[in-house]
Design a protein around this nucleic acid. Structure first.
Lengths: 134, 134
DNA sequence: ATAAGCCCTATAGTTAACTCTAGGTCAAGA
DNA sequence: TCTTGACCTAGAGTTAACTATAGGGCTTAT
């Protein structure tokens, strides 16, 4: 099955602009073209784009994702680099999860703070203790 | 206890530039000044900045954080808005956690993919099945 | 009293990741 | 044939969030 750029954009919830931008940045060297230059995406290209989106969602900048794509093109000699990169991504995601957990605790604290204030009709209910007055 | 802008920057792992930028964007209307204009931070200002950092870490843009700060200045009439905002943040963080979990699964899959390839010395070990060739 | 070191404002510059416009090609339908 | 609509490139514009510079003011140590 083959897809046009706008079909892929819809599938991945991106715009065609974004996909062309990724291509320009060297993230999609594998996508083939018709003789007149139109991009033709195959199933495996979409899989690769899903990995790219995955890496992006870990906060990895596009230039670093390009390194990975280049390594992929370079073949088996870069297996170690790619393995190390994913291990590093794993660590990064773990840290982000920890960070989010802490954020969640503060947010939940604020939710109950405002619930109490709302029930009382005033924030003054909290003003007796010194912390958390925001 | 009072603090200078650079002391606060160090405490919160930000730069003085960033703090002045926040101030310019209206995030710190509560910070007092000496007669000649120098900012003087008190403990409660630092607490407020921690909340701002917390909101920022949920992905909230500075302009929306400013809305919240404005509501805080407006007093009890905005308690509902502030409560709703934190509930919304809570939902957002929950979604981000879900997203990160999915990301983690893919990353871990890639880790074992590359571990296997590395042990075999070649990525070809995976080439028999059609998916996941990246 | 003068230089160092911190503070200030206003404003310009940077970076990442898009997002859009202009100008053009090509294929299919009325 | 001619128009519509999808595709293309090159390059300009946008936005958020800083980051830095220029020019100036206090305070403190030599």
């Amino acid at each position: 099955m083959k897809y046009s750029i706008s079909e892929v954009a819809k599938k991945l919830d991106l715009t065609a602009y974004t996909l062309r931008y990724y291509d320009k940045e060297g993230l999609m060297p594998f996508v083939e073209r018709t003789p007149n230059g139109t991009r033709v995406f195959k199933e495996s290209d979409i899989d690769a784009l899903k990995i790219i989106e995955c890496l992006k969602s870990t906060g990895m900048p596009i230039k670093e994702i390009k390194n990975f794509i280049d390594w992929c093109s370079d073949g088996d000699s870069t297996l170690q680099e790619r393995y190390d990169m994913f291990l590093e991504r794993k660590t990064s995601v773990e840290e982000q999860m920890e960070e989010l957990k802490k954020t969640m605790e503060l947010i939940e604290h604020k939710c109950s703070y405002y619930k109490t204030a709302l029930d009382a009709g005033t924030e003054d209910i909290h003003k007796t203790n010194k912390i958390g007055n925001f």
